[in-house]
Every structure is written in C-alpha cells, then in structure tokens.
Amino acid sequence: MRIEIGHGSGGRLTRELIEKVFLKHFDTPELKPLQDASCISISAESIAITTDSYVIRPRFFPGGNIGKLSICGTVNDLTVSGAIPKYISVGFILEEGLPLEELEKIVESMAETAKRAGVKIVTGDTKVVESGKCDGIYINTTGVGEVVRELSPQNSEPGDVVIVTGYVGDHGTAISLARENFEIETQIKSDCAPLNSLLTPLFELDGLRWMRDPTRGGLATALIEFSESAGVGVKLYEEKIPIREEVKFISEMIGYDPLYLANEGKAVIIVSKKDAERALEILKSHPLGKDAEIIGEVTEDFKGVRLITSIGGERRLELLEEDPLPRIC
C-alpha cells in the first residue's frame, strides 16, 4: 500500500492512517483523545521550546532514518540549552505514493527513540501533497523542556576548556556515502542518538558554561558562532580532535573538511578548567561519551577560532559560504 491524496482529506483514509500507523506506535495518554490540542503539565518556572524541520536525503541511511533523526535532533537541541526534554509534537508532510510500510518504519523508529530518551510525543498533524511536490516525507517537530540550568556563551572565561563528546564527522560522511554511491566499503554509520542521558549529569557542575550539538556546519561552525557571541577566542589542537581514519580518508578523497561535517550524536562543551576533568569523567562513564576528549581552550589573546595543526602550524577557521553537503538533516 502507498500513501494516497485521500490520506490527507480528513476522512476515512485519514482516520485509518492515524489509527493503524500513528496511534499504533505513538502510545501516549496525551495523544489518544485526538483533540485539537493536548494538555501537558509543566512545573518549571522556565521552559525551553525548540522547533526544527527534517528534509534529509536519503530518508534511510546507515545508523538511522529521518524519523529517528527528528526525535534525536529535538531532544538534543533542548538538552544543550540546559533543559530536560519532556514533550514533542510532530508534523508530517507526506508525498502521494510513499510506501505505507516505509512510513510505518519511520514512525516506529520515532516511537522507539522517544521512549529511549524519556520524552512523550503528545500531538501531531499530517498533510499529503501530490506526487512530485515533496521528497517522500518531511517532518517538523517542536520540543518542550523544563529549564534547569542557564547556559550561555557569555558565561565563558579565558582559560575555560573545550570538550567534544566523541568522534566528529560520522553523520556527514555516512550521508555522503549513502547519497552519492561512491562504492566505498566502510563501517561508518551516522552517530544519530539522543544525548540527554549523557549530558544532563553535567548540569550539576558549577563550571559548566555552554553546550551545542554541532549539526549543520559541524564542530568548526559551532565554535565560531560561540566565539563571536562570547567575544573570545578559541584555540583548538588538531591532534586532540577525535576523527576516525576512515572519515579523514573519505574527506580527503571527496574534498570535505571533517571539522565542518554534520554530527547528530555529539556535543561540544565549554567548562571551567577546574571542572574539566570531572566533566570528562562523567562523559566517559556513558557509552555515548566514551571517546570524549579535551580539544582546546578559551583565550583572550585573539578573537575567532584557530586550529593548532599536528605539525605546529596555525590555521584560522572561517564560516563556510555554503554547506558542502546540503540536506543532511
């Protein structure tokens, strides 16, 4: 079976799609009444809200799919903002002709990822467009979380330490290989994962300054934006940055820089020098942070981001004019 225009009509086919696909997997009491809005409970004085749209190509890739990605991205955006993720809304734009079996696999992965992250999918919407008007499926999400820690680039001070939670560039490399069919045999998979269980223990550290999930634009872009916002410089050490040899090789072959490739299961963290080792200890105790490393420091000696190369040279990192690999999330 495939998606038909009638699935977006609001009639019988719509009802069947909701009951046989969405409610089958999105099993939360807030969603089941199928009202125009869901009632949720928030006890925090401050909440965080994030929204994002996912248009990745291909829809399925090594390590995940567009559905898993949409939940991970939303959870991670809330977490690095100092919030505990609680609720997610999902909106689907479906193209006529999309296989129903493929849609259900995507929805099932969303439900499994949400359960793993401890968040509830509480409301949603579905629209169907004519064949050729959409690349199979687009997903929009909005996430709500309870703020428990105020994080800001302005909290940083010279001497603070830069930590990355693991290997960078995996997601961008996996998507590139899946999309372009370079016929390269590799075990590289997307790092797509919800990071709240990894990162929330860091909220207890007095010296935690700032966090970001370096998605589009990668590690380099995230730190350049941090530097501009904080008005400080960042010194990175190339030999300390964890990058898989396969990612380095593939990047050199097709002309990419791993520092600018997207990640969907990593975070870059600024923490005081005093708390750096404790932060690293917390991260390494979690499966998603076992490869975490201290990769640099905040400085007042210059503005911007400078990479100290493995041979002792220095390279200034700049914002890219355009994404080298569009449609990666």
Rank of each mutant, 00 (worst) to 15 (best):
L13N: 11
T221G: 02
L31C: 04
A117P: 04
D170Q: 13
V164I: 14
A37H: 13
I5L: 15
S197H: 15
V80K: 06
L317Y: 00
E245R: 15
K127P: 00
N155T: 09
L208P: 05
L236K: 01
I93M: 09
C72S: 15
V144E: 06
L283M: 11
E146R: 08
E281I: 10
V147A: 10
H7V: 03
K303I: 03
N140F: 06
L317P: 04
P62Y: 02
V107K: 14
S176A: 12
S190W: 09
D36N: 12
D27F: 11
D160E: 12
S9H: 01
A178F: 00
T200V: 13
S41R: 11
S109L: 06
R278M: 07
L288M: 06
E45S: 04
A178Q: 03
G132S: 02
K115E: 14
Q187R: 14
G118Q: 08
Y260I: 06
K115G: 11
R216E: 15
L259I: 02
P326S: 09
E245H: 08
D213M: 14
I88Q: 05
A174C: 08
E96I: 07
I121L: 03
V21D: 03
L205C: 09
T309K: 01
R116F: 10
C72Y: 10
L78Q: 04
T309W: 02
L13K: 14
E180W: 08
I121M: 04
T165D: 05
K115A: 03
S81W: 06
I71Q: 01
M211H: 12
K68N: 01
E185C: 10
E264G: 08
I137C: 02
Q154P: 00
S109W: 06
I270C: 06
D52A: 12
I163Y: 10
D191F: 05
K105T: 05
P258S: 01
L195F: 06
T79G: 12
K240W: 04
S156C: 08
G91V: 07
K133V: 08
G124Y: 00
V107I: 07
D213I: 08
K86V: 04
G233V: 00
G207N: 07
P33E: 02
S227N: 04
V168K: 10
G169D: 02
S9A: 14
L280I: 10
G67W: 10
V144C: 14
D135T: 04
L23Q: 00
G159R: 09
Y260D: 03
E104K: 02
N155E: 10
V80S: 05
P242S: 13
E130L: 14
T186P: 10
E321V: 08
Y138P: 02
V75G: 07
K32G: 00
P242H: 11
V21S: 02
L13M: 09
I243T: 01
V21T: 14
L31E: 03
C72I: 12
T113C: 09
